[in-house]
């Protein structure tokens, strides 16, 4: 699958409108990808949704990648997948996040699907979404420590819920906690 640059409509539109914030583009295996600057995420997402030439009405997926083991300096990459039903196109938008300051603007108000995706991303990677109104854990329980999908979270670490552990200690092993 080879795609020439002239066919990458969205990439060229973005390059024209946000010349400074597009850091990198590629089209590996036909997946149109742009890497953008963190501070322009909101305006670019709004542009992607509302511009006639783009009209990405649907946020398909929102996740993050932890590149700790690859020793990359911005450790995290936020990955947004959008789908345009009108033009039948997809685009992947990536934002690089530093470990020390892993927070990013929430695009909560643009798509309704964002709410839970951002909660999941926060839960799994500990990435903070600014202005998200209800940033809580979603898959893990509230007492959970750490963020399980970070590469430095050990695979075999166990965190039973406190109350359950108490019950087990008390009734199963007859020990006081």
């Amino acid at each position: 699958m080879t795609t020439t640059d002239s066919e990458l409509v969205t990439t060229s539109l973005l390059k024209k409108n946000f010349p400074k914030s597009i850091l990198e583009t590629h089209c590996h295996r036909g997946d149109e990808t742009v890497v953008i600057d963190r501070k322009d995420l909101l305006s670019i997402c709004e542009f992607l949704r509302d511009d006639e030439g783009c009209s990405y009405e649907m946020l398909v997926d929102l996740t993050a990648v932890d590149l700790l083991e690859q020793n990359r300096t911005p450790r995290f990459e936020m990955v947004y997948h959008f789908k345009s039903l009108r033009h039948g196109k997809r685009i992947r938008v990536k934002v690089r996040l530093d470990e020390q300051d892993c927070s990013i603007d929430s695009i909560y108000h643009l798509w309704k699907a964002v709410d839970w995706y951002e909660r999941e991303c926060f839960d799994m990677y500990g990435i903070h979404f600014n202005n998200h109104p209800d940033l809580r854990r979603i898959l893990m329980y509230d007492q959970f420590e750490g963020h399980p999908l970070r590469k430095d979270y050990p695979m075999d670490r166990q965190q039973p819920i406190e109350e359950l552990r108490e019950i087990e200690e008390r009734y199963h092993y007859q020990r006081d906690v």
């Binding site: 996740t63 590149l67 083991e69 997948h81 309704k112 839970w116």
Partner: peptide, 27 residues
């Protein structure tokens, strides 16, 4: 949707599955 990231070694960097019913339950 499966979002896969590989670094060329034998271990996956990221295996992300987009669950279809996540959005439904959200709604």
């Amino acid at each position: 949707g499966f979002y896969l990231v590989s670094d060329g070694s034998g271990d996956p960097v990221r295996v992300r599955m987009r669950p279809a019913c996540f959005n439904y339950v959200e709604a």
